[in-house]
Design a protein around this nucleic acid. Sequence first.
DNA 1: CCACTTTTCAGGAAAAGCCA
DNA 2: TGGCTTTTCCTGAAAAGTGG
Length: 329
Amino acid sequence: MKRKNTLRDLLSAGPEAEAAAQPTTARVPSGAVRAMGLSLGHLREEAQALRASIEAGDTVVELDPALVEGSFVNDRLAADSEGELRALVQSIAESGQQVPVLVRPHPDKTGHYQIAYGHRRLIAVRRLGVRLKAVVRALSDAELVVAQGKENIERRNLTFIERALFAAHLEAHGFDRPTLHAALAVQSAEMTRYLQVARSIPRAVILAIGPAPRTGRPRWLELQRLFAQPQAEDMAAQVVAGPGFRALSSDARFQRVFESLRHGGAAPEAGRFWRNPRGEPVVRIEQSAQGMRLTINERLEPEFGTYVAEQLEALYQGFRSSREGRKAR
DNA sequence: CCACTTTTCAGGAAAAGCCA
DNA sequence: TGGCTTTTCCTGAAAAGTGG
């Protein structure tokens, strides 16, 4: 099997070589690797996938990229950065497309194809106006989404909420749990959390917040719990439509929705301060999932913090009696 | 700037709940 | 009852924050 060996040589590094964590020049020119900022793990996943396809007897063909369409399930909330894409375009222009993409014959349009993984390479190749190196395999819908999921999940490119939405999309398409687990490479417990979040938080709110790359499972779960309270949807809708919301980063948008539901009203602005009459920011007020933290700057107000600590008992008594008063009314 | 602490995230195991 | 889903908890790693 000459072809098999040739292709193997192209992707010579196996998992054993990766374990050494040393870049080998046999696989892809190392300069290009560095330029693209790709992790070795990423290359390993692709190499493994391709090795698997070679072992399955697939051949690499060259296709007109115009005949290749995207998948029927969309998994991303945000497009890849232009910088990353440009680096990939440059790499392919210089050293050619080193790794083929995986496609299947289009189920409805004869002569067309649907991509399973390699979306970014497809875009890059289109820009260059060259032909697309691809492995064509007859994949079922389930196999297609599993392959597509692997492309993103194994690169760890999707945020928590993107995975959750992807899972929800797949579920809506009627895929069973085992397929979902395989597509996202997670256990059933994690899948439950994805679906729970995607089901409980209104889609419009999720889309308005966006991928929130620095917001992970705990806080999304916490937000999902907040949506159990009455009026949560209305409140969130108000926040989302509020002034300046769009201008915030995705993570800040999450934070604003989160805070507004926690406090049942207007979102406090980030990094609040209490100022003394001189206008100095003496107390920094920070809200987290755990609670509220007050940081008292004793350089600005010496011994104020000590005083506040001493007054906690009196403050608490005042807090209790104000609560009782409210209940009695 | 560096070392240390705290927070956050995500993977996974085990227990609990649900349903045919 | 057994299989599957959901909930809860624990853990290690990474990131962020803090203080000297």
